[in-house]
C-alpha cells in the first residue's frame, strides 16, 4: 500500500521534471534556464529521499544534502556571473 502511494508520488515528480524540461528548452532568457535548473534540483532531492526509503539505504540522504549544497553554490555563482561578470 505504502509502496504504491510512493510510486505514484515518484511518477508525479518525474512528470513535473518533464514539464520543467519543456520550459528549459523554451526559456527565452538565460535566467529562465537557471530557474528551471534550480527547480529540477529541488525536485531531484525529493526523488532521492523517496528512493532512499524504497531501497532502505540511509546513505542516499547524505548524497541529497551534498547535491543541494552544490546546486545552491552553482546558482549563486551563475547569478553573480550574469550580474557583473566573474
Amino acid at each position: 500500500m505504502i509502496n504504491t502511494i510512493l510510486t505514484i508520488a515518484l511518477a508525479l515528480i518525474f512528470l513535473s521534471i518533464a514539464i520543467i524540461i519543456y520550459r528549459f528548452m523554451l526559456g527565452p532568457s538565460s535566467v529562465d534556464r537557471v530557474i528551471s535548473f534550480d527547480m529540477m534540483t529541488i525536485a531531484s532531492i525529493s526523488i532521492i529521499g523517496i528512493i532512499s526509503y524504497m531501497s532502505d539505504r540511509v546513505i542516499y540522504l547524505d548524497i541529497a544534502t551534498v547535491y543541494g549544497l552544490l546546486s545552491f553554490l552553482a546558482v549563486i555563482i551563475i547569478a553573480k556571473y550574469l550580474e557583473k561578470g566573474l
Binding site: 502511494i5 505514484i8 508520488a9 515518484l10 508525479l12 512528470l15 513535473s16 514539464i19 527547480m39 525529493s46
Partner: peptide, 15 residues
C-alpha cells in the same frame, strides 16, 4: 509525500 509531489507538479505547471 503524495501531497508534496502534487505541489511540485503545480510548481512545474506554473513555471
Amino acid at each position: 509525500t503524495l501531497l508534496g509531489s502534487i505541489i511540485l507538479l503545480i510548481a512545474a505547471i506554473g513555471l
